[in-house]
């Protein structure tokens, strides 16, 4: 009995750390590469950097324009999250707390969007943004990320708001409280856990969005991090250390977001995919 559990324990830790080790090795390889120059990478790909030189980071940030891409990504992700959550929380309040004709259709119209793959709307969206004069404009990315996140956000928020007990609102009505006040004094504060989880997930989604940004943005100074990074291969295709530094810069913010909010992210993703 003892022997068998010892064997299982060894196999268990061996397997877990083998898989973790592969990922960790990959991250370490990229991180080490970001301090190397091409000569070092070619000569000994697995060796540690000869010295701690931040040259690749400085060049990626400044001459390869990553500082501009970084702020564009921050702007697009933040603005689209605010857009989604502002309008989604309002319409979810209506769907969850009022009975009227068409309530179900209003909900169903948003939920049906969950089944439509976002990539299939690439061509018409490109043409629409073009005719609106929004091509090569960050507003187009804010709209795309903001609007395309609506189905999931309305689905989750309306579900969340339905679980809030009606007693509080009934008391508020007796006190002569308006519906608008009820929304931002009672419903919004009570929905905060759901809103916060959505904010984190939508932020990560917008931060990583690549396909739409690659067709809608053409000016260098308007690129977001994913397209900026993808274009590194064209412009700096043989500067491997620089590309490693670019990968590291792109990864750090989302990894930090994960480390700070991991319980919320894990719970949100699990319940989101279980329900969705």
């Amino acid at each position: 009995m003892k022997n068998r559990s010892l064997v299982f324990g060894t196999a268990k830790y061996g397997f877990l750390w083998l898989y973790a080790g592969l990922s960790l090795f990959l991250f370490a390889w990229i991180f080490a590469g970001s301090f190397k120059n091409n000569r070092e990478i070619f000569r000994s790909p697995f060796a540690l950097p000869e010295r701690l030189s931040f040259e690749n980071y400085i060049r990626a940030w400044e001459s390869a324009n990553m500082h501009a891409y970084f702020w564009n990504s921050i702007l697009v992700s933040t603005a689209s999250v605010i857009l989604t959550l502002a309008i989604a929380s309002m319409v979810s309040y209506v769907i969850a707390r009022f009975t009227f004709r068409g309530n179900f259709w209003l909900w169903g119209m948003f939920v049906i969007g969950l089944a439509i793959p976002m990539q299939s709307l690439l061509l018409p969206t490109f043409l629409k943004m073009n005719s609106l004069g929004l091509r090569d404009h960050l507003l187009s990315l804010i709209i795309v990320s903001g609007v395309f996140a609506l189905p999931k956000s309305v689905f989750v928020l309306a579900g969340f708001m339905r679980t809030i007990p009606a007693v509080l609102e009934e008391a508020a009505i007796v006190d002569g409280c308006s519906y608008w006040r009820m929304f931002y004094k009672i419903i919004l504060p009570l929905s905060m856990p759901g809103i916060a989880t959505l904010a984190i997930l939508d932020f990560i989604g917008a931060w990583n969005e690549y396909v739409y940004a690659s067709v809608l943005i053409s000016s260098d100074h308007l690129r977001t991090l994913p397209i900026g990074l993808a274009n590194f291969r064209g412009e700096f295709s043989s500067e491997y250390g620089l590309i490693c530094a670019g990968i590291t810069i792109t990864m750090i913010p989302v990894v930090l977001v994960y480390v700070f909010f991991q319980e919320q992210i894990v719970k949100g993703l699990v319940s989101g995919s279980v329900k969705g």
């Binding site: 990922s23 990583n208 690549y210 991090l225 990968i247 994960y258 991991q262």
Partner: peptide, 19 residues
Amino acid sequence: LRTVFFIPVIISSVATALM
């Protein structure tokens, strides 16, 4: 371990592709 397994989910597909 959970963090190491989960990080690939949240990093950009461009960064993953380049890696």
